[in-house]
Amino acid sequence: MAEWLFHLCEQLEATSLGVWVRESIYGFPILVAVHIITLVFSVGIVVWLDLRLVGVSMTGVPVSRVYRRLMPLAFVGFAVMTLSGGSLLTGFATSAYKNPYFRVKLVALLTAGVNALVYHTNIERRIALWDRSPVPPTAARMAGLISIAAWTTVILAGRMMSYTLYTP
């Protein structure tokens, strides 16, 4: 266990935001509700871009158009989801640090982020060649599958985390 990281978690819990999350009557339930709703909203949208990349839905619509029309909405959801999740973390950082499902969730989030980065910096650069193709190239399909797997893991680990946060 990295002591400096645990100490950082303790400091996070001691912030006024951390105290508010733990002690206010409505702070925690409102943040959890916002976190779950924005997760359902944004992941629910991203899955459809992923399915287009995999080549199983909206195959007659160019990938770039699906991205342009759907992702701005998802980005708003992701921003609020990150803010609410980060705020929740300040209230229970040390418990989360010790929780194995939180670590799984973080790894899955990191995987989703790196996957999106690789897609945008590498795979998407040649999109003109396959934008209208019903079944995109293997690399794009893999990016779609990895994204679906990563977000599924985020949801499962997130729910497991809430059931085990205070289990020693």
Binding site: F41, V43, G44, I45, I155, R159, M160, T167
Partner: peptide, 25 residues
């Protein structure tokens, strides 16, 4: 079983995510 309850809760949320995303798109 905490694992069973948590997993079912996650699957429940995945189902809802699929519905909301589908209806929205």
């Amino acid at each position: 079983s905490t694992i069973l309850t948590g997993t079912l809760s996650g699957i429940h949320l995945i189902g809802l995510t699929l519905i909301v995303g589908s209806v929205l798109v």
